[in-house]
Amino acid sequence: MQDPPLTMIVRTAGTNCEGELRRAFELAGSRTEMIHLDALISDPARIERADILAFPGGFSYGDDIAAGRVFSMKLRTKLWDALCAAAERGVPMIGVCNGFQVFVQAGLLPGFAPDAYPDGAPQPSISLTQNKEARFIDEWPRVEYPSNSKCIWTQALAGCSDDPALLPIANAEGRFVAADSATIAQLESNGQIAVRYVDNPGGSQGSIAGICDPSGRIFGLMPHPERYIEWTHHPYWTRLSPEQTSRPVPGLVMFKSVVDAVASQPA
């Protein structure tokens, strides 16, 4: 039998959600390998082992200067070619919270048409910046998963509503902003908006919580799906009906969708 897919999780000083991200992938059936960013930079070929790449949440390098800035600078200057090669190989990638901020600043999102990866990292056209109240927020806002989304991580959740349709956020710089309204319109028409807030606590433009690249494989989101892989993670699970809690947990669905898809690809 073929080995289960290998998810490579890239950590560094100040990332702090890699443990639960690993657990989510393992519950979804993946093998995992945790690697320090500097170890990957010193040997970028190691990325070739990965079937899935994951960038965890946290405060990489203290989020000093801006959230994810130093991490993304290292990706742009040291790992751009290796990441593009992985993307061309069809490797799904997820950036959660700080990982999303890193993707955006590195220029991996909103991304490129397949076979159109530039030689160097481009200037960002979108940003994740300070919440409108200029402070950290931890809560579980309601979300929706647009039905036209190409995102392979969230497609299975398109009909998700009511009590299960929440996701936990925990960030100070989670407000999505685009350089212009055309960018938002293009993301919408391209099916790149993967998750939207119904309540929009940080004040994101277009209520955007997460987007994918045009291939649907590279996905970044501010909420933490890895904190929603058991029903006991739900903020009011003590009120949920047994019927509800017998269904799959939405956060885990994201990981399982992609791990299953990779596993079912011919070797």
Partner: peptide, 18 residues
């Protein structure tokens, strides 16, 4: 709300309820 009360993914009963 300004504290992350679920990082590490093990929080079962959170400080704010309902």
């Amino acid at each position: 709300r300004q504290y992350d009360h679920e990082v590490q993914g093990n929080t079962v009963i959170k400080p704010l309820i309902g």
